[in-house]
Design a protein around this nucleic acid. Sequence first.
DNA 1: TTGAAAGCGTTACCAG
DNA 2: CTGGTAACGCTTTCAA
Lengths: 354, 354
Amino acid sequence: MARRVQKPATQVTADDVARKLGVSQSTISRAFSMTASISEKMKRRVIDASNALGYQPNVIARSLITRRTNMVAIVMANLVDPFYPVVLDELVQQVQARGFQTLLFVPSPGQPVDDIMPNLLQYQVDAIVLTSATISSAMARTCAARDTPVVSFNRYVPGLQIHAVASDNIAGARQVADYLVSTGHERPAFIAAQRDATTNIDRRHGFMSRLKELGMPACLEEEAGDFSYEAGYAATKRLLRKAKRPDAIFYASDIMAAGGIDAARELGMGVPEDVSIVGYDDVPMAALPCYSLTTIRQPVAEMAKVAIDLLGLADPRGTKSAPAMRTIMGSLITRSSTMNRGTAGAGRKRKAAR
Amino acid sequence: MARRVQKPATQVTADDVARKLGVSQSTISRAFSMTASISEKMKRRVIDASNALGYQPNVIARSLITRRTNMVAIVMANLVDPFYPVVLDELVQQVQARGFQTLLFVPSPGQPVDDIMPNLLQYQVDAIVLTSATISSAMARTCAARDTPVVSFNRYVPGLQIHAVASDNIAGARQVADYLVSTGHERPAFIAAQRDATTNIDRRHGFMSRLKELGMPACLEEEAGDFSYEAGYAATKRLLRKAKRPDAIFYASDIMAAGGIDAARELGMGVPEDVSIVGYDDVPMAALPCYSLTTIRQPVAEMAKVAIDLLGLADPRGTKSAPAMRTIMGSLITRSSTMNRGTAGAGRKRKAAR
DNA sequence: TTGAAAGCGTTACCAG
DNA sequence: CTGGTAACGCTTTCAA
């Protein structure tokens, strides 16, 4: 039996196609470019021969000379919170729709994003999307010097010279305050996540300041520490065990609110009978019957579109726009984790009278 | 005021560093290679000068000559099912831990993976991971010809010449059958997802065949159509409205089972009092108090490790191993969506007697 | 250990 | 419209 000769497994190049057709290698290149001029007939011959030989242009070699890799880096610091798979999905769709590919980076827990940036820049990505993560201003300058646009999704750092897209957290939180007051709640509380996250800061501030405007006395507050189910659960237990219990709790995020609902129920309290619960994000989970969570819906698809648009991928070497901050309006989705407690003053009586 | 000259924004190359140091460009290259021989002193000088100038090797240029991009493509057909974010997280961690980067592809709904493979191969990725997706045998041959290893995660196609990793779906489903029978269930049912998905086929078969072995009469069955909450919900409503109702339902996946629990409750039935519910995957959601779902836990971290190991990324141009199929044992996690209905025969009486 | 030179596979420019 | 030739930024022989 003849020993099978090992196939070289070397890749088919434009030269191979050129040789087969007896034309120059440049011609092969032109057949795959939409700007170069080439006759229809020749183009057909090249395409056919390429298919026959299994030739595909090597985009790595191409990007060496065009200086564009057609890759967008997406940094995802968090895949556990159910909000982020949705975000990733939308971002990737937007990237791919523009003919680009996604290079995904997931920092290991605790790893600062600045650490992975050099690595990422080595790959010569055409743009960078950061989700729930920020970089130092030094790193922002490095990116600017390289003409690599950066957009921060769902977070921003005031003064940092990069693009940013977020839902209007302040306006959203104000809507929650308006809604809770108009439905007769009298002792609202806020459960906070990371102190320094802009999402947390703005939602807290919008909520608190609007309550004050509405003449509501001091709002209760509890620090959960981070945006997790467990943190929301624990903070809620602490809060509801206090003497002066709130009749409504607004959380910095949906997943925290879910933990809150479960905590309240475990304490024998009804949601919304004893306490109304409001989240922020409108993750898929919020619509489940066991939570049926009133929340602010983040328009993720639109936010993703705006974010990718800001990168200006369309115009190669085009004018990089100045860092812009875009905030997009969310909308209040009312479900059954909240209830109308009667207009302020009439209070519980009105409900009982029905 | 002098008009500022526009910075060329050209990247710093090894040549720039070489010029500054008065050495050859090869020396710069050697300083960043761990195999090349270079004096410690020179290496220091190069590294220092590189930092000063902000030089970082261009990995794109490197990969053109090394023929390795250090990129692994991950194809994620589904990010909606909560099982997949977990999978993606683990896979990316494994990829990054080996010093590789992830090129992520999300096919648009309905787009066959075969369509995006050429695109993906153009990027010269060193390996490919497919999750809940399959490719044609022609495409598998193309990859083999290019020496690009492919592993299918959580799905396999018998006879297809690519690696595959999955939990032992047959054994897992058998465990469910054993458990339900031993806890006194007498009318088990199975709710199926896609007919052609190997996960569905194996879970169904393992369950059915074990029930038969245990002398259980014909198992009820309902087709949900796909692996979604909505499909599980709808199929459960159909099933529970029938005259002969099951006392336990095993679903092809957790998210379907969650839909099932909600459907049962909506019909006024108690879970587990009226019907026990069992899922498969052990997604984070399964542990929530409102579902507290009995399920088979897929050892995702271990599966991801095995999958990436199969790609043989460690040895460059090394011996590509023959296509292997690895199945990994899952474990039964019992929670309160199931209950003990007493040993068969004693049946409900025993429970009532307590 | 170091330098010079030859590629890697492509695009882009310049003649014809 | 087509063919030659010079990059792109790097790694890798081969000599010195």
